[in-house]
Each structure stands twice: as structure tokens, then as C-alpha cells.
């Protein structure tokens, strides 16, 4: 059976619910023509605002819910499906709540934060739908750990072989052994490749010296080349793996803090509105 994504969960159960919410919000907005305009301060405005605020609280509850492995209600996939679809409805519900009035104030701040959270969520959904497959394709049978073990083996072999080679080759191999970094800081993890990779350099150096060596040394050179090439391939795959994991995580460093900031802005928004009623 084909793998079903969170979007298709229970035959689009939450998509249907989201469509109902959106249609109800639009119909309510269109029907309630207040003489003082359509905005957050009318009865319909308060209604849409309440629905929006409750939705936000419920969506944030997902962050807590998904950590509860002994979840009381429903599967994590179900929750995620609902989180995605109902989160998307907020775009309509909250925009109608604003009555399309925006300004440089805490009210629009809350709206803008909410939109950032939603769109970072869209990116996260895209990442979850796309990158796991790429990760599988990239790793094949391996894991990052097995790649590391393989690299360690290659390093050991290469160290032995390189000892008998010319200085520049030995140096290049040593450099590869000592300075090949996988992952690292935020940017290095997200980049997935290193511009001046010592291993790539070793491959180039060894390849360049093919015509300068003869006899037994040529064979060693060839073996070393094969080793370094394998290592480079492993290193590249390891870096891509690190990159995919980083990309899968990175958006959450926006999604989560922005949603917490949204909670603060939403609180300020609601209190401000009624403080200066």
C-alpha cells in the first residue's frame, strides 16, 4: 500500500473541516455588513477573532501534544494533519478578522507573526514531504554512523598507503585525515558542501600525480586514489545527510519561537483592545 502523507490522513478529513471553517468565515464576513465597516471591533469581528485565538491556542497545543507519547486522543499523524489544515484556515479567519486594516501597531504585529508562523509551517510541511525521501536516496543502506565507520577504515588504509608516497600526496592525504569536517556550524550544516574540502583536494592531488609515478608506486597511487575517491563520496553523502537533517530542523527554529512570540503579541493585542475599549 502506498504511503499516505499527513495531507491525505483519513481521506482528507481535516481538509474538509478546514474548508467548512473557511466557507463559514467568508460567509459570516460577507453576511454581516456593519454600517461602521467590517473590522475586528464589530460583533462578527469579535467572533472571528475569538475563533482565531482559540485556533491559535489549539495549534500551539500540538507542540505539547506531540511530545506525549501516551497521547490520549488520536495519532500524532492525525494531530499533524489537523494542525496543518486548521493552521491554514487561520490565514482566512484572521485576515477577515482584521477587516483588511493593517498598520504599524501591536495588532498587525500579532497578525504578521501569525502569518510568519503559518508560512514557516508551510515550509516545514514541504520539508517533511520532500526531504525524508531524499535522505533515503542519499544514504541508501547506510546510516551516518556507518559512513563514519567506513571513513575511519579508509583513513586507516590511506594512512598506511600514503606513507610511502611523495610528500605532496602524503601531505594531502594527511590533511584529508585530519581536517575533513562534516557538518559543523549552522551555515556549514545547511550548506551541505565545503568549498575547500581537504578530501576533494587530496583526490585532485593524487589524480594530478598519476603520470609522475611508475611501477609499484603507480599501483599504490591508484589504490590511494580509489580510497580517497570513495572517501570523498562518503564525505559528500554524510554532508548531504547532515544538510537534510538541518534543513528538516531549521524552520522549527523560526516556527516555534515565532509562535511563542505570537502568543505574547496575541495577549497584548487582546488586552490592548479592551484596555482602550
Amino acid at each position: 500500500m502506498r504511503h499516505r502523507t499527513v495531507l491525505e490522513y483519513k481521506r482528507y478529513r481535516y481538509l474538509k473541516l478546514a474548508v467548512i471553517v473557511v466557507i463559514a468565515a467568508i460567509a459570516g464576513y460577507a453576511w454581516y455588513g456593519s454600517p461602521v465597516g467590517r473590522y475586528g471591533g464589530t460583533l462578527m469581528g469579535y467572533g472571528l477573532g475569538t475563533v482565531g485565538a482559540l485556533l491559535i491556542l489549539w495549534l500551539m497545543w500540538f507542540g505539547i501534544q506531540k511530545r506525549r507519547y501516551r497521547g490520549s486522543t488520536g495519532s500524532v499523524q492525525g494531530w499533524l494533519s489537523a494542525h496543518v489544515y486548521l493552521g491554514t484556515t487561520l490565514i482566512v479567519v484572521a485576515t477577515l478578522h482584521t477587516g483588511f486594516q493593517i498598520g504599524w501597531n501591536v495588532h498587525t504585529l500579532a497578525y504578521a507573526l501569525m502569518m510568519l508562523v503559518i508560512f514557516s509551517g508551510f515550509y516545514g510541511l514541504y520539508a517533511y514531504l520532500r526531504y525524508p525521501q531524499l535522505m533515503t536516496e542519499n544514504l541508501g543502506e547506510d546510516t551516518l554512523d556507518s559512513i563514519i565507520l567506513k571513513i575511519a577504515d579508509i583513513d586507516r588504509e590511506a594512512r598506511k598507503l600514503a606513507v610511502g608516497m611523495a610528500d605532496n600526496i602524503n601531505q594531502a592525504v594527511q590533511d584529508s585525515l585530519e581536517n575533513t569536517r562534516i557538518g559543523g556550524g549552522v551555515m556549514a550544516q545547511l550548506a551541505g558542501r565545503v568549498r575547500k574540502c581537504p578530501t576533494a583536494n587530496a583526490v585532485t592531488v593524487i589524480q594530478a600525480s598519476v603520470r609522475q609515478v611508475k611501477g609499484e608506486e603507480a599501483k599504490t597511487n591508484k589504490d590511494l586514489y580509489a580510497l580517497m575517491l570513495r572517501k570523498k563520496n562518503l564525505v559528500d553523502r554524510a554532508r548531504m545527510d547532515v544538510r537534510y537533517k538541518a534543513v528538516l530542523d531549521f524552520w522549527l527554529f523560526f516556527h516555534v519561537p515565532l509562535s511563542i512570540a505570537l502568543l505574547a503579541a496575541l495577549t497584548a493585542h487582546i488586552i490592548a483592545v479592551f484596555f482602550y475599549w
Binding site: L109, L144, I148, N179, T180, R181, I182, G183, G184, G185, V186, A188, Q189, A238, D241, V242, K245, A246, D249, F250, L252, F253, V256, P257, L258, I260, A261, L263, A264, A265, A268
Partner: peptide
């Protein structure tokens, strides 16, 4: 030589979240 996982960098959801929450 391997450092994987953004949680092992300076990025911190907790610090970001609390900071933004407090500022806002």
C-alpha cells in the same frame, strides 16, 4: 570532525522563544 544536528549549534528554540516572548 563530525558535528551534525542544529541543536548542537548556537541555535536554541528555547532561548529564542523566551527572548521574543519577553520582548514582545
Amino acid at each position: 570532525h563530525v558535528k551534525a544536528g542544529l541543536q548542537n549549534t548556537w541555535l536554541s528554540k528555547r532561548i529564542f522563544s523566551w527572548s521574543l516572548f519577553a520582548i514582545v
